[in-house]
Design a protein around this nucleic acid. Structure first.
Length: 924
RNA sequence: GCCCGGGUGGCGGAAUGGCAGACGCGGCGGUCUCAAAAACCGUUGGGGUAACACCCGUGUGGGUUCGACUCCCACCCCGGGCACCA
C-alpha cells in the first residue's frame, strides 16, 4: 500500500461518500422499478398491447443502466485506496462450507415439472381411497389473475392438499366461466373477436395460476364457451323445455340501459342497480325465456343432508320469501260497467283474521282492472297517476319513507266476510308482481295501510284490542300489530292473537266459498334470455306454421358464430346475421327463424361441477356412473355474494335433473365455505371495479410458497383482508420463516445417533412436536390457516433455541422426528420448499404422499403444572408444581408466597377458589 | 326499519369464563460491514419507578361471577344481506 498524504485521504473519503450516496440512490431506483412492474401488470388493460411493450422496453433499458451504474460504483469503491483492504472477504467465511441457499424460483419450477410429469395431481376414478371432491367456484377469465384470486385458490388448495394427506383421493378441478359481457365489451372496444380474447385470457391466467403449485387437475379443465361444453348447456335447456320448466312469456322485466340487456331479479341489487355495471335498472314489458324455478320454491327451502353456513341458508330463505296466508275473493261494484258483468278480484293476505277491519281496497297501478274500474270523472287523474308510477324507477317507488299516494277509482269492493262496501283505490305501494296485485286495506293493523288511511282520510277500524286497556282508533299514531284479542268481528270476538285464530278465519271463508288457504313466494321465475352475443345460443327456432320448435338433439350444438358485427342497441347482435337467423323448421322443413337471444351465463355455471366428473364425453353431457363416483361435491368454496344467484340456481338445476331421472341426488354441494375477500379501498378487488394487485412480482421476488403462506397468514380465511401499502410488509415474516425452515432442515445430520427420548431437552422437543401436531392438524381442518402457520413458526423457533443451546440434540431421534413432522405439517401451505427439503434429507417419495402426523396425547403431556395465583381475581404470581399435586399442597404453597401473605395481612381469606391444575384465587 | 358478522397495541391478528396482546410486521438498541442490504441477538400496550412494587387498559354504559375480550341488558360505530312482499 502506498503512503497517502492528508489531502489524498480527504478526497478519498469524499469520493467514497459520494459513491455511497449514489449507491443508495440506485437502491431506491430499484424499488421504484419494482413498484412500477406491479403497476404495469395491474394496468395492463389500460396500457393496451403496444403501450405495454413500450413500457416494458423502457423498464428494461432503465434496469440495464442501473446494472451498469452499480457495477461502476462497486468497481470504483474497490479501486478506492481507502477501501481496498476492507473489501477483502473475511477468511473465516470462505473456509466454511457454503450452505445451499434457498432459491425458490429454481426449486418451484423443478417440482412443478416433476409433479406434472408424474401426474400426481390427477384424480383417477379407479382409486381405492375414499373420494373427496374439492371444488372452488371457477373464475371469469378477465385476463388478470390478481391477488384476490390467489388468496381464494390458495386456501382451497391448502385444504385439498391437507385432505389428500389425510388419505383421500382428492379431485380438485379447475375451469373458466367463459361466457359473459366483458368479452363482448372488449370486442366492441378493441375490435377483436370475443372468443379469441377470452381464450387468450384463459391461457394467460392458466399460466399465472400454475406458478402457485396447486393440485389442480388440469386433465379435467372445463371452459364454458367451447362448443364441446355449451352443446350440453343447450341440451340441458331442451331437457328443461321438455319438462315444462322453460317457457317463453311476456312480462315486465329488468332492463339495464347500459348493458343493453335484460337481467334476472337476482342480478338486480337491492338499490335497484345492475349487479354488473351499477346502472339504474328500468322495467320493460318484453317477451323472454324463463326457467320455472318457482315450482321448486318449497324444495329449495329444504337442505337435506347439507352442511351450509346458517347465514347462507337464511339469505336463500329470505330470497325465496315464503309466506302462508289466504286468497280471499272480493266482488266489485263498478258503476260504469253497464253490462253488469260480475267482476271478482282476489287478494292475498297473511292476516285473514283482520278481515272485519277492512275499510278500503287497493290495486297496483299496473293491475289490468284499473282502467275498467275507474269511473268517468276519475279517468284523467288516474291516467296521470298510473303513468307517473310506471315511469318511476324501482328506487323511488320502493322508498318506504315516501308519503303514501293514490287515486280513488270511484268503484267499490264487497268484503265477503260481512258484505260491506269499501272504496277501491289505486296506489303504487301495491306491487303487481307479488300476490295478486290487489290488497285489502286494514289500516288498524298494518302500518302501510295505516299511513295510507291517515293521508287519504279513510276510516280506521280496530279488530284487535290489547289486554287490559282500550285503544281508540282516532288516537292511534301507528298500527297495532300482533297484540291482544279479536273485537268487532262477529262470531270471532274474544279469540286471542294466534295461529289457531287465523286458521278459524280460513276455515270460515273456505266454508263460505269465498277464499282458501294459500302460500306465496317472493322469488320469481328465473329470466334466462339475454340480448347479447357472447353466450350459449338458445336451441329454438320460430316457424310460421309450427311456432316454437326445439332443435332436435342430433343437431346440437347450435354453433355461436365467431365473426359478428356488434350493434349493442338492445337487440341481440345475432339477429343481424341472416346466415345465422334464417333456417328451416326441423318439424315441417319450411322457413324458420332462429332464436337470437343467448343464455344467461349463470345457466352455464349451474352444471359445470358435473362436467368436471366426465369432461371429455362426446356422447353425453356426463356419464352417470362417473358422476356418481364423485358427486355430490364434498367441499365447495367461494364468495358469499353468490348466495342468491349461483348457489340457488345450481340447487334448482340439480333438483330438476333429479326429477328427470338424470341425477340420483338432490343437493349438489354437501359442505359450503365462504372465503373472505381481498379488499382494495374497502371494495372487493376485481378488474371490473378498478385497481388490482398482481401476484407475479411478489412470486418472482419471494417465491410462490412465501406468497401462499403470506396470504394465509393475513388472518382468518373467512375474513379476507384489506390490501394497502402495509399489507405486503407481512410477506417479510413468512419469507424469513421459510428461510429458517430451510436452514434447519439442510443443517440436519445424515443419520441419527440413535439416542432415545430420555433427556430433558429431547422430552421437551417431543412435547413441542406433538403439541404442534395437535394444533396444526386441527387448524388446517377448520380453515384456520393463520394460526396453523403461527404454531409452525413457534415450533421452528423452539427447534432453533434447542439446537443453539445444545447442538448435539440435532443427532437425536427426537430431532429427526421433529424436522420431518414440521415438513409434513407445512407441506399443504408451502408445497415446493417442503418437497425439496423432504428429498434433501434423504427421502425418495413425495412429501405430499405422506400421511398427516398422528397426535399422541401421552407424548404431548406436560410433567409439571403451572398454577396461576390470583388475589381477588388479579394475577399475582405463578407456581410450577409437579403433576398430581394435591389441593392442600397447592393451597399451602400459595399461602406461603410472601406477596400473597402480605396481601392477606393478618385477616383470614374469605374464600379460596381452586381450579385443579389451573389456578388458585384468594378472596379477601 | 329488520336479520347476520365485526369493534383488542403503531399495523395484520391471537386468546370464547381463568396469565390479554400468541405469531408476525413495524419501531428502538446491538452484533457483523468502509457502507448498505441480508442475517442474527435483545427490547417493544400506556402510566409509574433507579429498579421493583403498583395503577390503567379489549367501542360506550350497566349487570352476572371468586374471576369477563369472552356470558346477559342497553347503546354507539363499521361491514354485509333484506326491505312498502300485503
Amino acid at each position: 500500500m502506498t503512503l497517502l498524504n492528508q489531502s489524498d485521504i480527504q478526497s478519498s473519503i469524499e469520493r467514497a461518500t459520494r459513491l455511497k450516496q449514489l449507491q443508495s440512490l440506485t437502491y431506491k431506483t430499484r424499488q421504484f422499478l419494482q413498484k412500477d412492474a406491479q403497476y404495469q401488470i395491474a394496468y395492463a388493460s389500460e396500457l393496451g398491447e403496444e403501450g405495454a411493450i413500450e413500457h416494458a422496453n423502457l423498464s428494461k433499458n432503465l434496469e440495464q443502466s442501473l446494472i451498469e451504474l452499480e457495477e461502476y460504483i462497486s468497481e470504483r469503491l474497490r479501486g478506492n485506496n481507502m477501501t481496498t483492504e476492507m473489501q477483502e472477504k473475511p477468511k473465516a467465511a470462505s473456509e466454511r462450507p457454503e450452505p445451499t441457499r434457498y432459491n425458490p424460483a429454481g426449486i418451484e419450477k423443478k417440482w412443478q415439472k416433476i409433479w406434472e410429469e408424474t401426474g400426481q395431481n390427477h384424480a383417477a376414478d379407479d382409486d381405492s381411497r375414499p373420494k373427496f371432491y374439492n371444488l372452488v367456484m371457477f373464475p371469469y377469465p378477465s385476463g388478470d389473475l390478481h391477488i384476490g384470486h390467489w388468496y381464494n385458490f390458495t386456501g382451497v388448495d391448502v385444504f385439498g392438499r391437507f385432505m389428500r394427506m389425510k388419505g383421500y383421493n382428492v379431485m380438485q378441478p379447475f375451469g373458466f366461466d367463459a361466457f359473459g359481457l366483458p368479452a363482448e365489451n372488449a370486442a366492441i372496444k378493441r375490435g377483436v373477436q370475443a372468443g379469441k380474447w377470452t381464450l387468450s385470457n384463459i391461457d394467460k391466467m392458466r399460466d399465472q395460476l400454475k406458478t402457485m403449485g396447486g393440485i389442480w387437475d388440469w386433465e379435467r379443465e372445463v371452459v364454458t364457451c367451447l362448443p364441446d361444453y355449451y352443446k350440453w348447456s343447450e341440451w340441458l335447456f331442451l331437457k328443461l323445455y321438455e319438462a315444462g320448466l322453460a317457457y317463453r312469456a311476456k312480462a315486465p322485466v329488468n332492463w339495464c340501459p347500459n348493458d343493453q340487456t335484460v337481467l334476472a331479479n337476482e342480478q338486480v341489487l337491492s338499490d335497484g342497480t345492475c349487479e354488473r355495471c351499477g346502472a339504474v335498472v328500468i322495467k320493460r314489458e318484453l317477451e323472454q325465456w324463463f326457467f320455472k324455478i318457482t315450482a321448486y320454491a318449497d324444495r329449495l327451502l329444504e337442505y337435506k343432508g347439507v352442511n351450509w353456513p346458517e347465514k347462507t341458508m337464511t339469505m336463500q330463505k329470505n330470497w325465496i320469501g315464503r309466506s302462508e296466508g289466504a286468497r280471499v275473493v272480493f266482488k266489485v261494484e263498478a258503476p260504469d260497467q253497464e253490462n253488469q258483468e260480475k267482476i271478482e278480484v282476489p287478494v292475498f293476505t297473511t292476516r285473514p283474521d283482520t278481515l272485519y277491519g277492512v275499510t278500503f281496497f287497493l290495486l297496483a297501478p299496473e293491475h289490468p282492472l284499473v282502467e275498467k274500474l275507474t269511473v268517468a270523472g276519475q279517468k284523467a287523474e288516474m291516467e296521470a297517476y298510473v303513468k307517473t308510477a310506471r315511469n318511476e324507477s324501482e328506487i323511488e317507488r320502493q322508498n318506504a319513507e315516501k308519503l303514501k299516494t293514490g287515486v280513488f277509482t270511484g268503484s267499490y269492493a264487497i268484503n265477503p266476510i260481512n258484505d260491506e262496501k269499501v272504496p277501491i283505490w289505486v296506489t303504487d305501494y301495491v306491487l303487481m308482481g307479488y300476490g295478486t296485485g290487489a290488497v285489502m286495506g286494514v289500516p288498524a293493523h298494518d302500518q302501510r295501510d295505516f299511513e295510507f288511511a291517515r293521508t287519504m282520510g279513510l276510516p280506521v277500524r280496530l279488530v284487535y284490542q290489547p289486554e287490559g286497556r282500550e285503544i281508540k282508533s282516532e288516537e292511534m299514531t301507528e298500527a297495532l300489530i300482533h297484540e291482544g284479542h279479536v273485537v268487532n268481528s262477529g262470531p270471532f270476538d274474544g279469540l286471542p292473537d294466534s295461529q289457531e285464530t287465523v286458521q278459524k278465519f280460513i276455515d270460515f271463508i273456505e266454508q263460505k266459498g269465498v277464499g282458501k288457504a294459500e302460500v306465496t313466494y317472493r322469488m320469481r321465475d328465473w329470466l334466462i334470455s339475454r340480448q347479447r352475443y357472447w353466450g350459449s345460443p338458445i336451441p329454438i327456432v320460430y316457424c310460421e306454421k309450427d311456432g316454437i320448435v326445439p332443435i332436435p338433439e342430433a343437431d346440437l350444438p347450435v354453433i355461436l358464430p365467431e365473426d359478428v358485427n356488434f350493434r349493442p342497441d338492445g337487440v341481440s347482435p345475432l339477429s343481424y346475421m341472416p346466415e345465422f337467423v334464417n333456417t328451416t323448421c326441423p318439424k315441417c322443413g319450411g322457413p324458420a327463424r332462429r332464436e337470437t337471444d343467448t343464455l344467461d351465463t349463470f345457466m352455464c355455471s349451474s352444471w359445470y361441477f358435473l362436467r368436471y366428473c366426465d369432461p371429455d364425453n362426446a356422447e353425453k353431457a356426463w356419464d352417470n356412473e362417473r358422476v356418481n363416483r364423485w358427486m355430490p361435491v364434498d367441499q365447495y368454496t367461494g364468495g358469499p355474494e353468490h348466495a342468491t344467484m349461483h348457489l340457488l340456481y345450481a340447487r334448482f338445476f340439480t333438483k330438476a335433473m333429479y326429477d328427470m331421472g338424470l341425477l340420483s341426488f338432490e343437493e349438489p354441494f354437501t359442505s359450503l365455505f365462504h372465503q373472505g375477500m381481498i379488499r382494495s379501498e374497502g371494495k372487493k378487488m376485481s378488474k371490473s371495479r378498478g385497481k388490482t394487485v398482481a401476484p407475479d412480482v411478489l412470486v418472482q421476488q419471494f417465491g410462490a410458497d412465501a406468497v401462499r403462506a403470506f396470504l394465509m397468514f393475513l388472518g382468518p380465511f373467512d375474513q379476507g383482508a384489506e390490501w394497502n401499502d402495509k399489507t405486503e410488509q407481512l410477506l417479510t415474516g413468512v419469507s424469513r420463516f421459510l428461510n429458517r425452515v430451510w436452514a434447519i432442515a439442510t443443517d440436519m445430520p445424515a443419520e441419527t445417533s440413535g439416542e432415545p427420548f430420555t433427556s430433558a431437552d429431547t422430552r421437551q422437543l417431543q412435547r413441542a412436536t406433538h403439541k404442534t401436531i395437535q394444533k396444526v392438524t386441527d387448524d388446517l381442518g377448520h380453515w384456520a390457516f393463520n394460526t396453523a402457520l403461527s404454531s409452525l413458526m413457534e415450533f421452528s423457533n423452539t427447534l432453533q433455541e434447542l439446537s443453539s443451546k445444545n447442538s448435539a440434540i440435532r443427532h437425536t431421534e427426537a430431532w429427526f422426528e421433529a424436522v420431518q413432522t414440521m415438513l409434513k405439517l407445512l407441506a399443504p401451505l408451502a408445497p415446493h420448499i417442503t418437497e425439496e427439503l423432504w428429498h434433501q434429507i434423504g427421502h425418495t417419495d413425495s412429501v405430499h404422499n405422506q400421511s398427516v402426523p398422528v397426535f399422541d396425547p401421552a407424548l404431548a403431556a406436560d410433567d409439571v403444572v403451572t398454577i396461576i395465583v390470583q388475589v381477588n381475581g388479579k394475577v399475582r404470581d405463578k407456581l410450577e408444581l409437579p403433576i398430581g399435586v394435591s389441593e392442600a399442597e397447592v393451597k399451602a404453597a400459595v399461602l406461603a408466597i410472601p406477596r400473597v401473605a402480605s396481601a392477606i395481612g393478618n385477616g383470614e381469606p374469605k374464600k379460596i377458589i381452586y381450579v385443579p391444575g389451573k389456578l388458585v384465587n384468594i378472596v379477601i
